[in-house]
Nucleic acid binder design. Structure first.
Lengths: 347, 347
DNA sequence: CTGTTAGCGCCTTCAA
DNA sequence: TTGAAGGCGCTAACAG
């Protein structure tokens, strides 16, 4: 049987309350006593039963997810995953809530962060845009003792506690590498469709992609980046125009959330030679993968990200360490053949 | 606050014990009473606090993993993951143990299963070979009320409760599809290195691969399967001979655990045109991916598999349903660029 | 058939 | 600075 607080109390010759004070290092214990208890803990190899501890404190952790609103399917999937995790959350004594803010809007984002701080939540997870006032808001959360994790797109200098998302530079490299191999010797330039260069993740993917393309045995032109603001209409227009203007186009890398417009622009075509790689598995990209319109999809699993964010925030709130290796989010590569069955929250 | 057993007892006008009996549907409750309690449960929207329940019963679940012994790196990685999971297992009130049996040995496997049944463990997870006596042993476990899950390679007709592993037909298809695209128009036949056609997973991968190759726009010869018994020496010999005999070889699909020999046979070569796809991310395949000797690795995450097996066995032991969607093991595709940092248990 | 009572391992008042 | 006692939500003896 595993040792319990009783065993430690007996071993150290103190009461349960004292053991508890030492375990949660709370004040009010003499140095000597503390040392004695710590010795007992070490001697018996005690490890606290977290479930019992949670039961006893019956504390709940209100966590806030701040996500961009709009019709970005990946973000809607992320929100669905938060809601889904919220159903199971009472078991882990967390209460999840979602706050939606206009996309690309630093001011609104800052307002949402400050509101969460004012509510004194136990942790904040947010998809942030890269702006100095956002970093300042994150610093305020830190100052208030509220753990903060960035989701999907990072903001390194901000002092956030943790980043939950993929390595976007590696994602871009992966896309470039796959595109290069799929194209082989086929000539022609490739186009890149992004949302906005103001998003750190989009910039990073582009950097990785360009690096990988440059490292390919055959040199290939990459056309100037098309920025569609992750808007279906704009993406459709940009891609349509590009296709018309570039008859020998060999490939398209869609690194943002403009896939609805992309697929629409592509769907009229019959040219099987065009290599298309996109990000995020959504209803659009899944269907396009199945019909062969898209060749590969790079994905970050929204469900994993949400669960990881919750675990990290809880750990930070309790002052526990996080296992970085376990919390690393992998970059999935999907082709037609390894597509998982559609989940309920995929849009 | 969430309703508790007390609330239900009050609402239904019965005692805690009766509520407990209904909840765990144990006998000794009159139909009417039961109905009244059930009504209260429904009315209050009660959901049981599993952590508290486990705490109260202080039951532990001894689970046995039966794995093939030998130097198969994937199996050793799997074993390491079981041991690692065993460290955290007291928290989930499980106790994990590993039993090693000679690979490809149905008799030894059956003996191990029967031993576990005799010990009255709470669940068995095993990497099984495809043989009628194995199915019979699984049936005995079932008869003894012991949940049984197959790991990595399935045995569908056996009545096992669950399969933890990837869809191996889809894995083969994925390999074929990638190989076809990577090769493009490059001519030449491809070779297949397997462990043994007696392993269901190897047969399934081969089937999928052949189907995908057949569906490619350009027809390509697939040489007769090389069976290396997952032995480094045999694999080395088979691949060396094949390379020598087939100067125009375009690709190799290694669908078993012969990668050490494969890499060794490949390492002398300088022909960059050969496309190599292998299974399972190990020290060998990781290094070969990094140096470019291997182009892609298909992987099933051993850590996920172990954790899934534990969850499923626990659920079955408690008579709870399993969420099939959550327990689905994904097929990972790794290329040089999306390789995750090496974990401690990878061999 | 049903209820009472005493824990599971831990935390938290409240006294001393 | 320390300890005693009660309770978190659930289960399991043992009575009735």
């Amino acid at each position: 049987m595993r040792p319990t607080v009783h065993d430690i109390a007996a071993e150290a010759g103190v009461s349960l309350a004292t053991v508890d004070r030492v375990l949660n290092d709370r004040p009010g214990v003499r140095g000597v006593t503390r040392a004695r208890v710590e010795a007992a803990i070490a001697a018996l190899g005690y490890v606290r039963d977290v479930a019992a501890a949670n039961l006893a404190k019956s504390r709940v952790y209100p966590l806030v997810f701040i996500l961009p609103q709009g019709d970005n399917p990946f973000m809607r999937g992320l929100e669905a995953q938060v809601r889904r995790a919220g159903l199971h959350s009472p078991a882990e004594r967390t209460r999840l809530s979602v706050v939606s803010v206009p996309a690309f809007d630093a001011v609104a984002l800052v307002r949402a962060i400050d509101a969460a701080i004012a509510e004194d939540v136990a942790g904040i997870a947010a998809v942030v845009v890269d702006a100095p006032e956002v970093s300042a808001a994150i610093a305020r959360a830190q100052a208030a003792g509220i753990p903060f994790v960035t989701l999907v797109s990072d903001l390194e200098g901000s002092g956030r506690d943790h980043f939950v998302g993929v390595d976007n530079i590696a994602a871009g490299r992966t896309a470039g590498s796959l595109m290069g191999r799929f194209l082989g010797g086929r000539p022609g330039p490739v186009a890149v469709l992004a949302g906005s260069m103001r998003l750190r993740d989009h910039r990073e993917r582009l950097d990785g992609f360009l690096a990988a393309m440059a490292a390919m045995p055959t040199a290939r032109t990459v056309l100037p980046v098309l920025e569609g603001q992750d808007d279906p209409g704009q993406a459709f227009a940009l891609i349509s125009r590009c296709l018309a203007a570039t008859p020998d186009l060999a490939g398209i890398y869609s690194l943002g959330a403009g896939n609805h417009g992309l697929v629409k622009a592509l769907s009229g075509r019959t040219d099987a030679g065009l290599c298309v790689i996109a990000h995020e598995l959504t209803a659009d990209t899944r269907a396009a993968l199945e019909t062969g319109l898209i060749d590969a999809v790079l994905n970050q699993d929204a469900g994993h990200e949400v669960r990881s964010a919750v675990r990290v925030l809880r750990a930070k709130a309790d002052g526990l360490p996080v296992n970085a290796a376990q919390e690393r989010i992998r970059l999935d590569i999907f082709i037609k053949d390894n597509l998982p069955p559609a989940g309920p929250d995929e849009e």
